[in-house]
Amino acid sequence: MHGMHGEDGTVQGLCELADIPYSSCGLVGSAVGMDKIVMKAVFQSMGLPVLPSIYCYRAQWQQDPDTVIARAEETIGYPMFVKPANLGSSIGIGKATDRERFRHAMEVAASFDRRILIERAVEKPVEINCACMGFEGEVLPSLCEQPAGWDEFLSFEDKYTRGGGGKGMKSLARQVPAPISAEMTARIQNYTADIFRMLECKGVVRVDYILEADTVYVNEINTIPGSFAFYLYEPMGVPFSALVDKLVLYAQRALAQKRESSYAFSSDILNKAISGTKIIKK
């Protein structure tokens, strides 16, 4: 499942209530991973490099677009990416190189979400992705990949329909391992593992990065990545069947851990209140 009401913590919360094991991240990690605005705030709090950005509400744009435009031009400057705070697979994302395109991108984004992220666009960006698999203390970053896009960023069509016969992310042209230095590879893998731990992730996630010359920026985390990013683990000796086995194991372990916790607390405070006993604070 991708996007709202599947990848954003809603289904995960339902599984928690029903006491059903599931292989994706938990409720918090899923929710943070879907909301680009909250996600960037968490990354910044971790000291990770992110692109400059601002955000606004749909109501602000509808009521006073000139103020939003002025703030974006002053704070970010062109070119900019305009993104719905939620959703995924590049849906609703537009690149603005001038005021007219910015207005159009804002209208599109506002049709998908009530909160909109406005972010500096990198000229000639290089995208690097790194997956991570595990649960609790077991964390295994994957090899890094460099996807080859047709446009300046991977659109929905690039990811799921072009040249791949509907085979998803696996069908995209890519270089594995990514043609970057060993030092940059290690840095990205460490960032990925740190994010996995901070968001209390489970199963397989993929973190996407943007390279601008020698500077790396954390772009976003995908908590249910396309094709489970299995193609990044196969060269490491982890076949798809073994990866699926691990996902099932992590789901079972997480449910077992949940069942070890107590969720009830015995107290006679209500009985005392009903009987009229006065509670004295010490």
Results as ranks from 00 to 15, higher is better:
S171R: 03
S45A: 13
E260H: 14
V248E: 02
S111W: 08
C132T: 11
I116A: 00
G165Y: 04
S90C: 10
F153W: 10
L199I: 13
S53K: 06
G134H: 06
G163F: 12
K124Q: 15
T185M: 06
V139H: 04
E73Q: 10
L211C: 15
G77E: 03
P84I: 00
K282C: 15
L243T: 05
H2Q: 15
S90R: 13
I128S: 09
P65W: 07
A85S: 15
A173L: 05
R259Q: 04
S89N: 12
V122I: 15
Y263S: 11
S171M: 02
V218N: 01
R206Y: 12
Q189H: 05
Y22N: 07
V238W: 03
K202N: 08
K159P: 12
M39S: 03
F265L: 14
G6M: 09
S90M: 12
G226T: 06
L117G: 00
F112T: 00
G226L: 05
K258W: 05
E183F: 00
K124P: 11
S23K: 02
I269H: 15
A213R: 09
L117N: 00
Y160Q: 02
E127I: 14
A251F: 04
S24A: 11
C56V: 13
K278Q: 09
I180F: 00
Q252H: 10
L14F: 07
Q63K: 11
A273V: 11
D64Y: 14
P141N: 15
H5V: 03
A182C: 07
I76C: 07
K281S: 15
T215W: 09
I224N: 01
I69M: 13
T67S: 10
G94K: 01
A148H: 14
R120M: 14
L117M: 13
V126R: 15
D8Q: 10
K281D: 13
M133L: 07
K278E: 14
A273E: 09
V238E: 04
D151I: 11
E138A: 04
E73G: 02
N86I: 00
M34G: 00
Y78P: 01
D19Y: 08
Q175N: 07
S89I: 11
K40H: 06
T67M: 05
L48W: 05
G164P: 03
P147Q: 09
R120Y: 12
I280T: 15
P65N: 06
G163I: 04
